[in-house]
């Protein structure tokens, strides 16, 4: 009974042919795939835990992220300061927790931006094809013709160059820059999946019953395209959080004194020789988070049987 829940096209056709099944789905997870699995729940818990810390940062019993304690400057973990202090004695744990705020805003914000705009464009171009597609897709391809990091770097550098750019405004610019970069990526995936799903019989049936295009797109096609979008988005959040670190290294990430994981690492690189704990602790948190997001992306893929071949 569980196998029938798999919704992918090829599976429905080949479910009676075990040999083909074996070729197309080498990992048998797809067949079991009704549950996410323990590891995925651990990943969810980790992300939720960080999100909670980020939200509760103002009320948590941690020092102000910008307050300096001379005693812990460049020192490793102590009893009162579990992660030690940074170059000028600010509590590293507090900075990482506050940094989670900006890093998550950048990661989730940029992807949400790209998902809404890119998803909409992808859905429209994939559904209507023809002239709309011919107009919008080449535009997206131009954005794809520039290496993504270079594109983000260009946008953020230029938009953050004006006078009077404070930390909040810079955060918005970073979200916008990375969001624009993710539009064509998410758009392309949505378009490819929409193209495939729009061919299906139930879409034809809805058309035959006289449903309007908008309704078909939102009620019939979108729910089926969602898993692929979600899976790529989860990977995208990780990529965006790391990209902010890259931008910070170039001096155009989230602006100090507002902490982000990226700028803590970028700032901490100067202390690498004598107090490597700044970069190491922050990197570990960053690494675990990206791994959790990648893992969730994969889990969604397996759970819903999203196929690379559709792309």
């Amino acid at each position: 009974m569980q196998t029938n829940r798999d919704t992918s096209i090829t599976h429905l056709d080949s479910s009676s042919l075990p040999t083909i099944e074996a070729i197309e789905a080498p990992s048998s997870h797809t067949v079991k795939g009704n549950r996410l699995g323990t590891a995925a729940w651990v990943a969810i818990a980790w992300i939720a835990f960080l999100a909670l810390l980020a939200i509760l940062a103002p009320v948590l019993p941690i020092p102000d992220p910008n307050q300096s304690f001379v005693a812990i400057a460049r020192k490793g973990p102590t009893a009162g300061h579990w992660f030690g202090g940074d170059a000028i004695g600010r509590d590293l744990l507090s900075r990482i927790i506050w940094g989670t705020r900006s890093s998550f805003i950048v990661g989730f914000g940029a992807v949400a931006f790209g998902l809404i705009l890119g998803g909409m464009l992808g859905l429209i171009t994939g559904f209507f094809r023809g002239r709309v597609d011919g107009l919008i897709t080449p535009l997206m391809n131009v954005l794809l013709a520039i290496p993504q990091f270079v594109l983000a770097l260009s946008l953020v550098t230029v938009l953050a160059s004006g006078a009077g750019v404070n930390s909040t405004r810079r955060l918005a610019v970073v979200v916008l820059g990375l969001g624009i970069v993710s539009i064509p990526l998410l758009g392309r995936i949505t378009r490819a999946n929409t193209l495939a799903w729009s061919e299906r019989e139930f879409v034809l049936a809805a058309k035959a019953m006289g449903a309007k295009n908008g309704r078909i797109m939102v009620r019939e096609v979108l729910p089926n395209v969602m898993p692929a979008m979600l899976s790529i988005s989860l990977l995208g959040v990780g990529i965006a959080i790391v990209a902010e670190g890259g931008l910070s290294l170039f001096g155009v990430g989230v602006q100090l004194p507002m902490p982000s994981w990226g700028n803590i690492i970028a700032e901490g690189r100067g202390q690498m020789r004598n107090s490597p704990h700044i970069v190491i602790f922050t990197s570990i948190i960053l690494f675990l988070t990206v791994m959790a997001l990648n893992f969730l992306g994969d889990a969604v893929n397996r759970r819903f049987g999203v196929r690379e071949s559709v792309l």
Binding site: V279, F287, M291
Partner: peptide, 22 residues
Amino acid sequence: AFAMLAIPNFALGFLLQYYLGV
């Protein structure tokens, strides 16, 4: 491989620099 995909390249760079270089 899964872990390697999740390591940000700058973080890896700093760590290699520190452990293998310094």
